[in-house]
Design a protein around this nucleic acid. Structure first.
Lengths: 146, 146
DNA sequence: CATATAAAAGACAACATTGTCTTTTATTCG
DNA sequence: CGAATAAAAGACAATGTTGTCTTTTATATG
């Protein structure tokens, strides 16, 4: 019940862009990495993936950088996890037993089942847009704090 | 919301011992690894840790092997995770932000909080003994199935 | 005591994730 | 067009987890 570092970087990068002043159309990797205190080049790779998957836009050259687009706020956390490479573990047994199911449950099956459903539901129904709080003054601080 | 392989091996190894015929006091690594279809030497390392932490007993030499002891059934899954090296993530923010807390929550804080509490509670209050079903004929199958 | 047995221990390889550095490509602007 | 800028891409290192193999240690038995 923990996200990968890639996921965390991706989410925080996106939120940083989402919170940025719209007067400045493109935000550079340098600024994002510095503000979030995150390894620059690694973040670059993650951002690249997000661009490839259409979750963000990017622009090369002077005054270029990254910005959100029409998909960004509608992107679910589940989608984000897929992009950042979290394994697809929808029906997979927590103990990785292939034959585990309701009829032939592994010892953990019943204990875990409900929590996993809640977890999946949360990831699928929470969108980037839900996480942005433009009205909250400490918001940027809360994603920058490391 | 997934256990490490080490954890899975440990749990299944313990349960295998817990289900074994008590007429045979010690069970060898060879048998366990084969029955559970698990890498033998890697399992050996995991079992060694369990012995060191007093969750299992072991005996070298001919007719030696592993067996459960007075602690085994009373061991919680949380304890098992600690032994198998799952990081201690009790108060840690899911995004690994150090300054995240109820007063200065990260964007995921409220969404996750309740689920994490349930997860922690489940791990702390589920014991090895709770997972053994001596009455259930398919039980061994359910931990052997890979 | 000698031998066989089985865990314990240690060395090392495969693999994935994370992180750093350099080169390439695209774009803006003078 | 030429220079500067910034993302894209690629090479490679550090680290952690998982897996394999070999050697050492302890113990039971003849």
């Amino acid at each position: 019940m923990m996200f990968s570092k890639s996921f965390g970087y991706a989410l925080r990068g996106i939120l940083y862009l989402g919170m940025s002043d719209e007067a400045k159309p493109w935000i550079q990797l340098d600024e994002i990495a510095q503000e979030l205190a995150v390894p620059r080049h690694f973040l670059g790779k993650v951002m690249k993936k997000l661009v490839k998957d259409g979750v963000l836009n990017s622009q090369k050259g002077p005054y270029g950088g990254f910005c959100i687009n029409e998909n960004t706020l509608k992107t679910s956390l589940l989608k984000l996890m897929e992009i950042t490479g979290e394994v697809e573990e929808n029906g997979v047994c927590v103990l990785r037993l292939r034959k585990c199911n309701a009829l032939n449950p592994c010892p953990m099956h019943h204990q875990i089942e409900s929590l996993r459903r809640q977890w999946q539901a949360l990831l699928a129904s929470t969108f980037i847009g839900d996480l942005i709080r433009k009205d909250q003054p400490g918001f940027i601080n809360s994603i920058a704090a490391i």
